[in-house]
């Protein structure tokens, strides 16, 4: 009898407990990024840019060099870093309040310039850290503290499909939407994150992976219910897939 360890903590994920709520899928997204960094062997040459939002402490969790950008300005900071040191691998990790709301201009222009950076975009359809306000990505009819009767198109507009929107631009190299709600989606998500980093390393331009994620606390659900809700409600509106692949 011999025991072989077939799953362990990735090396570039720091050995600390995260501050996330129980069942928050940010942790899964962190692990996917850390695993890809390990697999590509780029821990020493990677620079991350932390967002403002729940994932603000990502610099404590992923063991690479890290910046902390002003709210929404991750792609601008990453642009500077990558232009000064093109040999480094630069990624930003942003939530939907950070990227789709206050930072939409930064990411759209970084994508339009075809900056050679990777953006990991976590879409959980709500503002997490500030207490469950409506985000640009909140679904129609979904309740949040700033739309307690549910989001209404007439008053609040429609939810925003960021991946499709950026895929209409000419410059980006790789744009995909994945989910981390169920194990099979997580395995696909990892392939997408890996492709995004490979796109950057090959110098093929801007890459973005939108990750559909859960927020059990602010959705007011148990963690397992939240993953089911994501599959039932979010995936029909935010279809998974690759919208742009490098030639």
């Amino acid at each position: 009898m011999k025991e072989v360890r077939i799953f362990e903590r990735p090396r570039s994920m720091a050995d600390v407990t995260t501050h996330y709520c129980p069942g928050c899928t940010h942790g899964i997204a962190h692990r996917l990024v850390a695993e890809v960094i390990d697999e590509l062997g780029i821990q020493e040459t990677t620079v991350g840019v932390a967002p403002v939002g729940c994932a603000v402490f990502i610099y404590n969790y992923i063991d690479t060099d890290m910046y902390e950008a002003a709210h929404g300005r991750g792609p601008a900071v990453a642009t500077a870093c990558k232009r000064i040191r093109p040999d480094l691998t630069v990624f930003t990790y942003q939530g939907d309040g950070d990227l789709a709301s206050i930072g939409l201009a930064e990411v759209a222009h970084a994508a339009n310039r075809g900056e050679n950076i990777t953006v990991i975009f976590i879409n959980n359809a709500i503002y997490g850290m500030t207490g469950g306000q409506m985000a640009p990505t909140t679904l129609l009819g979904q309740k949040a503290t700033t739309c307690p009767l549910g989001r209404e198109a007439k008053v609040n507009g429609y939810p925003m499909r960021v991946a499709e929107m950026l895929a209409t631009l000419a410059a980006p190299g790789y744009i995909a939407r994945v989910s981390v709600a169920k194990p099979k989606f997580i395995l696909e998500a990892k392939k997408a994150v890996r492709k995004a980093f490979e796109t950057q390393i090959a110098g093929k331009g801007f890459s973005l992976v939108e990750i559909l994620s859960t927020c059990p606390t602010n959705w007011g659900m148990l963690p397992v219910e939240a993953t089911d809700w994501l599959v039932e409600k979010m995936i029909p509106f935010y279809p998974l897939g690759e919208f742009k692949v490098p030639e």
Partner: peptide, 23 residues
């Protein structure tokens, strides 16, 4: 059955999985 699904889905990376080989 050492499928690793629990570890893959654990948000806190709190799980390690071992495969038991009968040699």
């Amino acid at each position: 059955i050492a499928c690793k699904m629990c570890a893959v889905t654990c948000p806190d990376v709190a799980i390690e999985v071992f495969r038991i080989d009968e040699v």
